[in-house]
Amino acid sequence: MFNYRTLVSTITVMAFLAVWEFAPRAGIVDATFTSQPTRVVAAGLEIIRTAGFLHDVSVSLSEFALGFTLAIAVGVPLGLVLGRFPVLRYVLDPPIMAIYATPHLALLPIIVVWLGIGMQSKIAVAFVSGVIPILVNAMAGVRGVDGSWIVAARSFSAREWDVFVKVILPASLPSVILGIRLGLSRAVLGVVVAEMYQSQAGVGNEIMRYGSEFRTDYLLFDVLLVSLFGLTATSAVRALEERLWTAGE
């Protein structure tokens, strides 16, 4: 199944690249607007040689890593606690759901007003974008634990901490990983858009600059670079998620 899926995916990608390359050559579309794979690769090689490329990448990665790490550190334990204690969940559920329903990028202007255009605002956007999916899925994972397991553990005189660590936490772990995967993609989006909105460095800042200069080849290279990072990171988390689901069956 894995080999078949890989084969189909490879054929699809190759077909897309072939159409993308030869459609402008055939005059079907204007390469000024769509570019071509060969032109994007050439532009990418030129970008990589520039002195500021590694700086922009390191800035974006640092903002994402710090913001997303904070999102995991806050979202996972808070979600587990809210899922376990209904009274606390009833108190905090309305504001959490309000933030969850609000487009997080709509909060970007006020975050910039509070924290400025430096790294702090990008870290905050990554945190806000990533923490809610993690929190909500962790909470749902705890609430979805089979009650008979908890009753069985307590029948053997298990304390509340033992029930939480040995029953609830392992059973809710797949949902926690799912939340991390969803939060990861949102955090990447948040960092890039925040850099596009107001920034002095970062890949998002370069995307905005190339777009304003109508340099499609360079613009698409940076967009594909972000997409590749997001795909690689989410695929790694998805693989971990599938292993946990398989282990739980």
Score class of each variant (00 low, 15 high):
64 F>R: 07
104 H>M: 09
106 A>V: 14
238 R>P: 00
9 S>L: 14
184 L>G: 00
148 S>I: 09
206 E>R: 13
28 I>V: 15
189 L>S: 12
79 G>P: 10
114 W>M: 10
114 W>N: 04
116 G>E: 10
150 I>G: 01
119 M>D: 06
184 L>R: 00
224 L>Y: 03
145 V>M: 02
148 S>H: 05
33 F>N: 11
167 V>C: 10
78 L>P: 00
106 A>K: 01
242 E>S: 04
152 A>N: 13
165 V>C: 05
41 V>K: 03
44 G>H: 10
150 I>W: 07
58 S>F: 10
140 A>K: 05
46 E>A: 12
22 F>Q: 12
49 R>A: 14
37 P>D: 08
194 A>K: 00
36 Q>W: 01
70 L>D: 09
135 L>C: 06
161 W>I: 13
9 S>R: 04
60 S>G: 13
66 L>E: 11
20 W>H: 07
58 S>D: 12
187 A>K: 00
94 P>V: 03
175 S>N: 13
79 G>K: 04
223 V>Q: 02
31 A>W: 04
167 V>K: 07
123 I>A: 08
164 F>I: 03
46 E>D: 15
115 L>C: 06
233 A>V: 15
180 I>C: 08
154 R>G: 03
159 R>Q: 10
62 S>V: 01
186 R>D: 06
57 V>D: 13
179 G>M: 03
119 M>S: 13
103 P>I: 02
18 A>N: 06
237 V>S: 09
134 I>V: 14
30 D>V: 04
225 L>P: 00
116 G>S: 14
18 A>P: 09
87 V>F: 14
196 M>N: 10
155 S>H: 08
214 F>H: 12
157 S>Q: 12
96 I>A: 08
215 R>Y: 08
14 M>V: 15
19 V>K: 10
240 L>W: 01
39 R>P: 00
111 I>G: 01
76 V>G: 05
78 L>Y: 02
65 A>S: 14
132 I>K: 07
69 T>H: 06
33 F>A: 11
51 A>W: 10
167 V>N: 05
231 L>D: 07
233 A>E: 04
132 I>Y: 08
202 G>C: 08
139 M>E: 01
150 I>N: 04
172 S>A: 15
1 M>V: 08
46 E>Q: 14
30 D>K: 12
238 R>Y: 05
53 F>V: 14
71 A>W: 01
59 V>T: 07
111 I>Y: 09
232 T>C: 13
67 G>I: 03
73 A>D: 06
93 D>M: 07
181 R>P: 04
80 L>G: 03
236 A>L: 15
84 R>M: 03
12 T>P: 04
74 V>F: 15
111 I>L: 13
63 E>F: 05
219 L>C: 11
75 G>F: 07
129 S>G: 11
19 V>G: 09
131 V>M: 11
38 T>D: 12
15 A>Q: 09
234 T>D: 03
228 L>K: 07
134 I>L: 09
97 M>Y: 13
3 N>A: 14
30 D>L: 08
30 D>Q: 11
1 M>W: 07
44 G>E: 10
136 V>C: 09
73 A>Q: 11
218 Y>D: 11
5 R>G: 15
3 N>S: 13
217 D>N: 13
129 S>E: 13
9 S>T: 14
204 G>P: 01
17 L>S: 04
62 S>R: 05
45 L>Q: 11
